[in-house]
Amino acid sequence: MNIFRFAGDMMHLTSILVLLLKIYATKSCSGISLKTQELYALVFLARYLDLFTDFISVYNTIMKLVFIVSSTAIVWCMKRDRVVRRSYDKQLDTFRHYFLLAASFALALLVNEKFTFQEIFWAFSIYLEAVAILPQLVLLQRSGNVDNLTGQYVFFLGAYRAFYILNWIYRYFTETHFSRWIACISGLVQTALYADFFYYYYISWKNNTKLKLPA
């Protein structure tokens, strides 16, 4: 464990807490893409298949459980909670995310560390995570104004993978045979997708204006 990875995990956890805060405090999920949340729930379920077979550390196990439980709770809440689901922007959240699922799985069958069930699902979760934010970014552009909590949610979610890239660079130079090129390349793509959001987020923060993404 290094400071970059720990900071990344804490930013990831913060993004989920901010999202939970927004949904429970405002009893609203307006501006949140249910499709992105469904994809994230899948990412964690596909990635943490080794939850009960490989014990890494207490921290690792607890964080995996937190991510699985929180992501499924958010999906359940946006679909089932009578008050929250009324504010879901169904007509704006129209990204065809099944393509992202199919493409990620196809790529995982072709490019993986080993052609085994667990490795294919791990690679699938890595590729899917890189593109899972797309429905959310499209929804933000369509809905124009972005409320503070939603903006902070996306910001922390983007920042977490940026810190993971620093973690991979650090591990590359400090550990002998460290090769995580699937996660690294995918992480670069994932962070690049946030580039324009980060730019407009920084502008809105600098000018202290409301965050607006150009349609």
Partner: peptide
């Protein structure tokens, strides 16, 4: 040896 590299990252 395990059939997969243990993934120690989240």
């Amino acid at each position: 040896a395990k059939d997969h590299v243990t993934k120690d990252e989240l």
